[in-house]
Amino acid sequence: MSPSAETVVDARGVRRVFDRAVLDGVDLQLRQGDFVALLGPSGTGKTTLLRILAGLDAADDGQVTVPRQRSVVFQEPRLIPARRVWRNVVLGSRNPRRDRKKAIAALTEVGLAAKSDAWPLTLSGGEAQRVALARALATEPGLLLLDEPFAALDALTRIKMHDLVAELIQRHNPAVLLVTHDVDEAILLADRILILADGSIDVDVAVDLEKPRRRSDPGFPELRAHLLERLGVS
């Protein structure tokens, strides 16, 4: 992340009202290469903000500028069961056959080249989520949106996925927004942590711990305690 990197996500005064204003004037700027985690208790509009940035939902008010090429990894892998793994990876391609090599390359990055011809329903949960990650990165997105992508994984798989995601994001260098309610995960992965509360961004802290992050870093428990306190858990 260089200080001169251009702003790729520019959201200003974003409002979204359901039965109440879930987002009430959210401002968020991300530059190329930023890795930002968005924390907050359930129902605070984290996912709503992510869906607006993804273009899956429209804001009621405000301005949103995002890269044309965006990818989302959801909590569930959301692979099309009727299409082989490699075809899922190039799902949006205009010519999947021509892009097959690209799919295999993306699968190689997540260590699943051998499964490229498999059917999604034969994969384990962790494998399927890695395919979803390969699919998200294969389009070389300017913005990668991660909506609790590790929440459904078992604890051991999650640790491996954290490392894999950190490594791949460093290589591809998109702007990343990770929605999570796991404070440790946010500290392990992100360079900046936001807390969404009462419809706007309440906390915005930089994570100045050395990479790769370790829980044994003395700064870790300190930051963790601070964030938990701001989340109302102490």
Partner: peptide, 27 residues
């Protein structure tokens, strides 16, 4: 709906969305 959304995220619209996501899943 989640599969359709996932197709839309990757730029599938109209006929391509039907051919790659909806029809095979409805088969």
């Amino acid at each position: 709906k989640k599969l359709i959304e996932s197709g839309q995220t990757f730029g599938l619209r109209g006929w391509r969305l039907a051919a790659r996501v909806i029809l095979p899943t409805a088969l």
